[in-house]
């Protein structure tokens, strides 16, 4: 226990990032209990654009809604986008990477060709093109971000498969007569989860940032959904007169992404002994 604690102390990234992420998860799960108002219904034009005060800690927006409440509810949108889209990417990436590395031959060529093409399309542009076709909305965001960012996971999975395939325990499993699918999922996959987890954590951060950007452009979630990017989009015009409407949602995006990035960095330090050795 003591040693574990010591290890954590040596890895402030993981601790700080984990704490920030945990706070956002709590916010998302218990949003109704934590929020003083309702994010959409409690609009009152009589109290619009009020600066931060005791009754409205983050002030109110142009429709008189409490910004703190909307920021808290916004964590639900952002975290679900990060989680769902990254889960999709990870599953696609793992399946393609595992099969490509394991079966090789023409399938490997196809998967790698596709991966390289995906990598040569900037993800923002890809997501924009998908949103352009499917139109705005949360479901479409899930798809746009969940189908376009699997290339890194795929590449890493494949290269890990190639390097573990010839290891003794895999050979042993082969000799025992395990089926290929069984070897892939019970022998190889558990041993390469570390790097995949790192990519997934950093990918979640990227997805949250991307959703905010798309919503800011008006191509993501639509009002009155309390999404951080969407809040910034409607506040943009009033930046000079009522800056608090923009400042708090932006800070929420920043800290949520920062938390995940730090957490991912920390995970990498733990899971990649190669790097840790170097740093010493």
């Amino acid at each position: 226990m003591n040693q574990k604690f010591k290890k954590l102390k040596q890895n402030p990234n993981l601790v700080i990032g984990g704490t920030i992420t945990f706070i956002f998860i709590v916010m998302a799960v218990w949003a109704p209990a934590l929020s003083p108002y309702h994010p959409v219904d409690d609009a009152d034009l009589m109290v619009s654009e009020l600066p931060p005060s005791i009754t409205y800690p983050f002030g109110t927006d142009e429709q008189g809604r409490d910004i703190l409440t909307r920021v808290i509810y916004g964590s639900r949108i952002s975290l679900s986008v990060g989680l769902v889209s990254q889960a999709m990417n990870t599953i696609i990436g793992i399946i393609l990477g595992l099969t490509a590395g394991f079966f090789g031959k023409w399938w490997d060529d196809i998967v790698m060709g596709l991966t390289n093409i995906m990598l040569s399309i900037p993800s923002m542009i890809f997501a924009l093109a998908v949103m352009a076709v499917m139109g705005p909305g949360l479901m479409n965001i899930f798809l746009a971000l969940g189908l376009t960012n699997w290339a890194f996971t795929c590449r890493i999975t494949r290269s890990q498969v190639l390097s573990t395939r010839s290891l003794d325990y895999v050979k042993a499993a082969n000799a025992l007569g395990y089926s290929r699918t069984r070897i892939m999922f019970t022998q190889i996959l558990p041993n390469i989860l570390g790097p995949i987890l790192v990519v997934a954590t950093l990918g979640m951060a990227g997805a949250i940032l991307m959703e905010a950007s798309l919503s800011f452009l008006g191509l993501g979630t639509q009002p009155p959904t309390p999404s951080w990017g969407g809040m910034l989009a409607s506040a943009r015009e009033q930046m000079f007169t009522t800056p608090w409407i923009s400042i708090f949602p932006g800070m929420a995006i920043f800290f949520a992404v920062l938390g995940l990035n730090l957490f991912g960095d920390g995970l990498r330090d733990i899971l990649d002994p190669h790097l840790t050795r170097k740093a010493k």
Partner: peptide
């Protein structure tokens, strides 16, 4: 650097506009 990677650029832009323009 980790902040720079995490900050939403449109928000940073808004803040910079507020500070340096207004």
């Amino acid at each position: 650097a980790v902040s720079g990677v995490s900050v939403p650029q449109f928000w940073l832009g808004l803040i910079l506009m507020y500070l340096f323009s207004l």
